[in-house]
Design a protein around this nucleic acid. Sequence first.
RNA 1: GCGGGUGUAGCUCAGGUGGUUAGAGCACCAGUUUGUGGCACUGGGGGCCGUGGGUUCAAGUCCCAUCACUCGCCCCA
Length: 413
Amino acid sequence: MASLQPVRGTHDLLPEQNRLQDYIANTAREIGELYGYHRMTTPIFEFTEVFARTLGDTSDVVTKEMYTFEDRGGEQVTLRPEGTAGIARAYISNGMQQMSPVKVSYYGPMFRYERPQKGRQRQFHQIGAELLGVEQVAGDIEMIGYGAHILKALGLWDSITLELNTLGDPESRAAYRDVLVDYFKGHFDKLSEDSRARLEKNPLRILDSKDEGDRELVANAPLFAEYLNAHSQEFFKGLTEGLGDIGINYELNPRLVRGLDYYCHTCFEFTTNTLGAQGTVMAGGRYDGLISTMGGPQTAGVGWAAGVERLALMVGEAPAGARPVALIPMGDAAEAKCRTLAQTLREGGVAVELGYSGNMKKRMKRADKANAKLAVILGYDELANGVAQLRDLDSGEQQEVALDQLADVIGKK
RNA sequence: GCGGGUGUAGCUCAGGUGGUUAGAGCACCAGUUUGUGGCACUGGGGGCCGUGGGUUCAAGUCCCAUCACUCGCCCCA
């Protein structure tokens, strides 16, 4: 049994779930087109270095969560844990600065070796978008509007909050970080065990600690706002005003941070309280230092990513698809005729349900189950007269239609 | 990685203190009806009771381990 189960944290996407996730991904893609973002696809694995370098040596994702292995040629490769690094690598590999600004969206599986929970799997899917080569705050505003648009189109907006913060430019950030580390070092004995570790790796994260003792310290910690230089303040002001222009509400969350050095300025998360501990549904920010960190030209960047499984949990089910026409033949001759008819209708763009066996009653039942709107009944008498009974399965009304007019009549229904 | 909960049919769940061939509803298949669906009735298929070990005359039931899912922490989408 064990060997017939999927690997821990992975799941089969049965047709219903697959359709739901496709619906979400397609909605995101279509909305992206409205903003001028086109889908691109990078490999699902890269040289390990691509992720190790961009995500930093200390992040949990790199140190504990990557699926890394040596391939048969002796190369260290890693299944991608997120989408941005691959896009950034592709930007450099393909000399995409020639196409600036680059506006792309993506969709695909990601892999993280984490302890699974609802809304957190080892293989999961993300949709995402990146804007490369735009340093103006207009890019950040557009990105957030784009993401919000998707959440609205999926009908989730009412249960979602946009949390917003600024990380400032590198200069402000470094200044604040130093002050913060000094402050917490002065209270080292009161820090929780987790936060002592964070002090080394990612001191800003202490601001978001759930430990009570930490929270008391945080309450009296120096404020980032006091260390933002004029440029950073100006940028953030532009962002909040721009969001006002497009009618998007947000909550300022000074504890919202990112661990990695190449992030700057805009930092946002769309969150919900309907998914338990996995409340972040879409998250993003500005990463002007990323491309250069990877060895490319200095290039500004903004982006976001969203977990498709988490969105799917919230959406529940995909809207109903097109209702098929069911063909109900009786007897071998009628079955042969229906085969021909089905092919013609399908090539004409009509969804057709044609069973493989069963008497009329069985076939009618299946038509019902397939949510068919119309049934075409073709028996001995009809075949002899070149007609069929066309039955509306909602109203029960039935009319006789000549076979050569059937496609036309169905097309008008 | 840390702490807690759960695991019986495809799904939702019953199976007091261990005791014959493990049950229900839904779903599935077939029939009642060799030409009319949603309803009803009848019948049928389907369970290594998550897995492995132990205690016992006897284990779905008790003990241990393991795996998976799940809640919180961590981290994040």
